[in-house]
Design a protein around this nucleic acid. Structure first.
Length: 737
DNA sequence: AGCACGCCGACT
DNA sequence: GTCGGCGTGCTC
């Protein structure tokens, strides 16, 4: 074969080939690049392209129909194509969909899928070593140790061999050079072992078996179907959906189990292992970069069958995703509120639709959105009404703090104390739930009435007596506890107001001097290790009274827990947050549900100043439907999600005219101008103002509100210098299905 | 997101 | 005279 002469120009010069490359930047659109001769690229390929002075990783992107061609003089060539798995068409569609829906530049969404350095990395070849017949010419003690360690003639990874011999890896390298050891290429370490769908098939209750069968059928059908697994605490929701996982494995399709990060516990992984023989691949912030790289590539190759992961796992490049489970679907941690604003639960539904996958949202207390979708038949409800162990859902009893509250300066009502006493005497454990870390949430000056606030965000500083500091729970600011009032300088006038878990511990210790107490909060001294140890101690019955924050509501099991006392059931109610009732209901339901899981009849007590509040009434009556009926009616009336396309536009930036520009734009494009109000930070509901946003517009528009028209109007009228536009993601889940 | 460019204050 | 603060704007 004659090779073409490189010096002479071709007779017919090939036309310049141009493709779009999406870069992981906030750029509005993909940029065009020239494809060098001899390079083949297709949409989804990961490439390196020059941008300004640097080189960047990007993804070849489908060219829009009406793309404005870029000046050919500007075109730079693609540098190289990366030898990594390209994004498939479904993944591209997913990224584009999220970008459109959340009004975010597509590059920012791509970043979520490419961000992991591991996506570009290629698995490094693992080198193993084995002893040969040669013996070292130069003998040293270190070398002797290596020879002795490898005397069995088996292959070991290089680092492994050095570690076993107790020498540095360079000794091993030296022996390789001398021919004493030979190198062997090891097969790449598997990202995860393959779960066995038939490892330990469970016994299911009739309701579980029926629900499992529905899910299995759906996985078999290989088409998009959304479900809600709606089961009371302890009804075996996990075991039920594990059967769908087994089916997906049998069919060779992949499964994603999404969970809030804190719910992804050892206990869950162990349960999975008991059913499938091995643990699933994990994906969350605590997984090492190296391990993430393996999982990432394993997911792309299809080798990893099941991933259990936090929010960000939603953007993994699955080769063939057949099943998604969203555990604790009501959890607020699924909502991402910086960078790309998205709700992982809703985007999971979108991804399932694009992948042709079965999806099940799982909760004992579904979010309002999901409940509405189930009631309207968009999601198929699979109800698990009974507890697996045959025990009843704990009875909830209100304690009216107006009539039978504790004396001033104390927080455990006499009745609650009596119940705790008899619980402990009967050998059971009691949990006091108070969602406030530290000793006291407010420090007040008796002399001048000054309240100590955070200098940077003006919320109250929380006293942490153990650490002898005042801390801001919003921004992390901390200072030593002052000896005099910072305002009037009166010494010894500062008094702590209200309870935190530390103070509650103090009170409980006084009331029950014999009892063994343990505080559980996220700032427990000693970190994760200590927490794990304390949980073990509790499980082994070495603790009588647990005093815990939100931490105790999720994930961990307390087999000996007989009763729960909620110190302040009203926390969270009464602010302007439209989700206050929902959150309180979910949290209290969940905490109360911790009691009496195994053979012990559980009881729960709610200390409240408003026992007549609908949330308390619904909890005490055990009437979930009443709660949902009311919440749905309120939202429908107020045009809040899920009955409005969105409820808030957030403007980041500092331009004082920006709010007016938004107001004009809203008025220009909303058919419901009378329902559109512009609220300043002081007026907007407290919970909607968090952090750095200077202005927030609440557009209580109808679902027909045309967002793109709004954006156009805003762009036209926006002052030149301004921040960016973001859309809050509490939106209409109808459009996902 | 970076990185350059640019236009004003305190240094060798 | 220059070094360097970060405000603005561009990158195919």
């Amino acid at each position: 074969m004659l090779s073409p002469d490189a010096d002479s120009p071709p007779l017919f010069p090939a036309p310049v080939r141009v493709v779009d490359v999406l870069l992981p930047l906030a750029l509005g659109a993909a940029y065009s690049y020239r494809v060098p001769d001899g390079m083949e690229v297709a949409p989804g390929d990961i490439v390196v392209v020059p941008l300004g002075t640097r080189n960047m990783l990007g993804c070849v992107w489908p060219r829009p129909e009406k793309a404005t061609p870029v000046d050919p003089a500007k075109l730079k060539p693609i540098q190289r194509r990366c030898e990594v798995a390209p994004l498939n068409a479904r993944m591209i569609a997913f990224i584009q969909w999220i970008a459109d829906y959340t009004v975010t530049p597509p590059g920012m969404v791509l970043r979520l899928a490419l961000r992991h350095d591991e996506s570009a990395g290629v698995a490094r070849e693992r080198v193993g070593v084995r002893l040969t017949d040669h013996r070292p010419a130069r003998r040293t003690t270190a070398r002797e140790k290596v020879v002795a360690a490898l005397a069995d003639g088996l292959v070991r990874a290089k680092s492994e061999a050095a570690k076993e011999a107790g020498v540095s890896p360079s000794v091993v390298d030296g022996l390789i050079d001398d021919g004493v050891l030979e190198t062997v290429v090891l097969p790449p370490e598997p990202a995860a072992e393959t779960p066995d769908p038939d490892h330990a098939a469970p016994d299911l209750l009739p309701a579980q078996a029926e629900a499992a069968a529905r899910l299995v059928d759906s996985v078999k059908s290989g088409s998009f179907q959304p479900f809600l697994i709606d089961g009371v605490t302890g009804s075996g929701k996990t075991e039920t959906y594990f059967e769908a996982v087994a089916q997906a494995i049998r069919q060779g399709r992949q499964t994603l189990i999404l969970m809030p990060e804190i719910a992804l516990t050892q206990a869950f992984l162990d349960r999975f292992a008991r059913r499938f023989g091995v643990r699933p691949a994990e994906w969350h912030s605590a997984v090492s970069t190296k391990r993430r790289g393996r999982v990432f590539r394993g997911v792309a190759s299809g080798e990893v069958a099941v991933v259990a992961g936090a929010r960000s796992a939603l953007f993994l490049p699955f080769r063939d995703l057949g099943l998604i489970l969203v555990d604790e679907e009501h959890d607020a941690a699924y909502k991402q509120e910086d960078g790309v604003h998205y709700h992982a639960r809703d985007m999971a539904v979108v991804r399932a639709r694009l992948e042709g996958a079965t999806i099940a949202l799982v909760s004992a207390t579904p979010s309002i959105e999901t409940e509405v979708n189930a009631r309207r038949g968009r999601y198929t409800r699979l109800a698990l009404p009974e507890r697996f162990a045959g025990t009843k859902v704990p009875r909830l009893e209100p304690i009216d703090l107006r009539r039978e509250g504790p004396p001033r300066g104390q927080w455990i009502a006499p009745r609650l104390a009596r119940e705790m006493q008899s619980t402990i005497e009967a050998g059971g454990q009691a949990l006091l739930f108070l969602n406030r870390r530290g000793y006291a949430p407010l420090t007040l000056c008796r002399a001048c009435g000054h309240r100590i606030k955070c200098p940077s965000c003006s919320s109250w500083l929380v006293e942490h007596r153990f650490r002898r500091r005042l801390e801001c729970h919003q921004c992390g600011y901390a200072m030593p506890v002052p000896h005099e009032c910072p305002n009037c300088h009166e010494p010894n006038a500062l008094i702590p107001c209200g309870p935190g878990v530390e103070r509650l511990h103090e009170e409980a210790a006084k009331l029950f001097p014999e009892a063994r107490l343990q505080v559980l909060s996220s700032d427990l001294a000693g970190g994760v290790e200590r927490l794990r140890a304390e949980l073990k101690a509790i499980e082994d019955g070495e603790v009588d009274i647990i005093i815990g924050t939100q931490l105790v509501a999720k994930g961990h099991n307390f087999p000996g827990l007989a009763m729960v006392g909620v110190i302040d059931a009203d926390v969270g109610l009464g602010h302007g947050d439209p989700r206050a009732a929902e959150r309180t209901f979910q949290l209290l339901h969940q905490v109360a549900g911790r009691a009496g899981r195994h053979e012990v009849e559980g009881r729960a007590f709610l200390q409240t100043y408003m026992p007549e509040h609908p949330v308390m009434q619904a909890l005490v009556a055990g009437d979930r439907d009443a709660f949902y009926d009311r919440e749905i009616a309120i939202r429908e009336e107020a045009h809040l999600p899920p009955f409005a396309r969105f409820c808030a536009l957030i403007i980041s930036g500092t331009d004082p005219h920006a709010a007016q520009a938004h107001a004009r734009a809203l008025a220009a494009c909303s058919p419901f101008t009378d329902k559109v109000r512009v609220l300043g930070p002081a007026e907007a509901p407290l919970a909607l103002i968090r952090g750095r946003h200077r202005y927030r517009l609440l557009a209580r528009g109808e679902r027909s509100f045309d967002l793109s028209a709004y954006v156009r109007a805003w762009m036209a009228g926006a002052p030149r210098a301004t921040g960016s536009l973001r859309v809050d993601i509490d939106i209409d889940p109808q459009s996902f299905v």
